[in-house]
Nucleic acid binder design. Sequence first.
DNA 1: CACTCCCGCCAATTA
DNA 2: TAATTGGCGGGAGTG
Length: 881
Amino acid sequence: ENIYDRSRMAPKTPIKNEPIDLSKQKGCTPERNPITPVKIIDRPQPDPWTPTTNLKILVSAASPDMRDREKKKELFRPIENSEQSDTPDSLQYDIVDDSTVDEFEKQRPSRKQKSLGLLCQKFLARYPNYPLSTEKTTISLDEVASILGVERRRIYDIVNVLESLQLVSRVAKNQYCWHGRHNLSQTLKMLQEAGELQYGELMTSQHKEQDLEYKFGERKKETIPDSQDRPLLDFSEPDCSSASANSRKDKSLRIMSQKFVMLFLVSKTKIVTLDVAAKILIEETQDTVDHSKFKTKVRRLYDIANVLTSLGLIKKVHVTEERGRKPAFKWIGPVEFPERTDEFRGHSPTSGPLPETQRGACAQYQTSATGNQRFTRHASFNSAQPCEAARRKVSSEPNSPRQERQDENCSKMINLAAVCRQKIEEDTGSAKNSNISLPFSLLPVPGDSDFCVNPLPQAVFPMVQADVPSFSLPNGISSQASHPSTPAASKTENGKPTLVPNQPFLCFPSSSLFMLCGGLQENNLSEPLPAAGDLGNRSAEAQAPVPPTAYQKRSSHKCSSPSAPVDDEEPTAKKQALEHSDLPLSLVVPKKPSESSKAESSPGSGCSAAVHLEINRPDLASPAAPEVANKDSTKPLDCQEKEKQSQNKDPDEPPPENEHISKENGNQPFQPQYLYVQPTAGLSSFNFLFSANQAPGAISLAANQLPSLSVPCVMVPSAALASFPLVCSPSFSNPLSSVPDGSFSAAASTNFSVSSLASTTPVFISTTGVVTPKVSPAPSVDPQQPAHPALHLSPVLTRSCSAVKLDSPVCMGHPVTLLKLQQPSSAPLTPKSIRPAHHEAFFKTPGSLGDPVAWKKNEGNQTRNASSVQRRLEISTTSPD
DNA sequence: CACTCCCGCCAATTA
DNA sequence: TAATTGGCGGGAGTG
């Protein structure tokens, strides 16, 4: 560090080419400022020039090996201890062999040693992950290049990617400011949102069958106003913006990196194959896919992937499909973004108590968003590189450059999100004009808009957060829900608040799964749970012991973790464990599922889709729904919003229990209460809705409180993504006995298995009442008989769902039935029918999407601006000193 | 041979 | 105009 400080002095431009060997300079004291950047000779000399050098060296030495290992193992274990180790995960692993290797390594700098990934690690090693806010670390490109012994060009590669994640920002020529990972979670969150908008459809729709599907296997999100189908944005669409020069920037590594990350965040499996990513990223056309272009894209993706790997956000895996095994990357970073992922990821396996934090975060988020909105304008276009333009422009405004930058970044992101939303809105509703950025929250869209769900993460969050802390959802839910609900419920029914409050949930942290169990209260409950419990004995334990509250054991990790740390980074060990389930390295994906098969294969997708559908169809919601909504209002605030959206669905779902439902609906005696759970950890975009009241009576959870169990849960894929596996067993509580009504019964237990892929993804939700009554006979349902039956799923769902039944390892022992919620309407649909629609959606280019014109217009304008904008950042150059 | 991806030419941007 | 950035793709290293 010392080094830099000094060195950083004046930013002189370095001489570019002189081949000075810094390498030799080892001797040199770090101090020597690398004013001129010299190229260093390739061989990286491990010699310690600077104090930190040693570390680097070690790392480097080890790293190559490490990399290899990675492949084999899981390399990333988060290192908790080392603070120094900047890089969260990756770095550390390197350390392994250090001693031995280095020398010899030096000797022969194999290609690996020069790898960008390694280089990136070295780079990251120089800076703290979480720098004190106070000190701003300035990065001098030249300096770094010389220190690391590489050409600047390589540094740009790294910095550009880091910049896309806002780990650094460009301050001026040759100068970058190191921000560390403080903002990482926010950035990811924004990307996720943007990604959902942008790619949600794709994901869902993609039919590219070959490529995409297997991966995503599903269309996760149609949630988006499919009707419109338009993707939202194109962020960086290069093509469009010919106007200004989108030219370079559009294609920029930076944008590509963001998109790439988005894909992960949107993907339910969290695995993205290179080729798919390349295709998606080649916005131009899937069609034209030039081979050459494709190749180039892939090269770039490797570059990006190497950096992301160094950051510990992804790891390489292989997806096996028919054709064979394809290289792919799996997201191992945080899935949820509480606010500060960082913290979590660090370690706290325990439930991260985020509540406040998150809220705070949210608040900030919003704030920033709003604050930034101004940026939005620029960005609005955002489709095309909003980011850069924004940032650069912003910079133009001189306030505090740095801050602004960050703001900018945030703003950019936000803008994007906003844009997306807008679009969505537009789609849904109507208004198109608005270039404007919306603030943050989505708007409820007129009419259908409900779907919007996605958009509102914030609101949701709070809830979750709250929950999380304690035990993750359950508590929070229960608590919140209960409270609010209680009154209502109580009124309605016996006045028991029971609904929510007591529900027990189980969450399985498995990366993707969540289990929700209702009705823990009852003793019985425990049983079922336990079964499930495989995953976590604890879960069982927890539940058992604690009646009212739900506890999630693992969930705590996950759920709570909204931070989702689990998989992500932190717990290596955990991770591994989880991962096992998830996927080791290779996955096999059913790429081409025959249709029928397909259903099976992609349960998750199906489900998601189904869910999605539901969402979309407000119609479903019986008239009651609205009312309900109102009522809901009584409920917890947070929830309400979500609920609204969800409501539609819910109403339906509950129905599964015919009786109750009917009653309910009619009477609405129960107010349907839903709890919305934000997708916290791992779930990227799922929303959970729990109907607090739902069928309380039906459920008859005797327990006063417990009744909650019976509450049907609805998963809503948040906007697009949704594809997470969830399992909710409303009835869990006693599936058997529990169902007084019977209606429930079936639903009661749920299982879901993770499909192979699934491990990560599939989620199932069973609502107590399955939406479609048709199927099953409630009565018949046995807990054991899985599945089935009872519910009916929309076709789509069905297939997926049906498949679902499996027992995943996760599954608990006892057989649970899975229930899927579907929309009523859906039933008739066949998957096929559905698909087509999706197809279209597929890759559309932005233009294709919505109104091309409109878009373009906007974009164009913006673009111009953007283009015009140049980087002004300059450094005041005042040397710090 | 297929994957990876390093290397550095050279154009677009900036200064 | 010079320097900085960074797209791009040849082709080498690896397995």
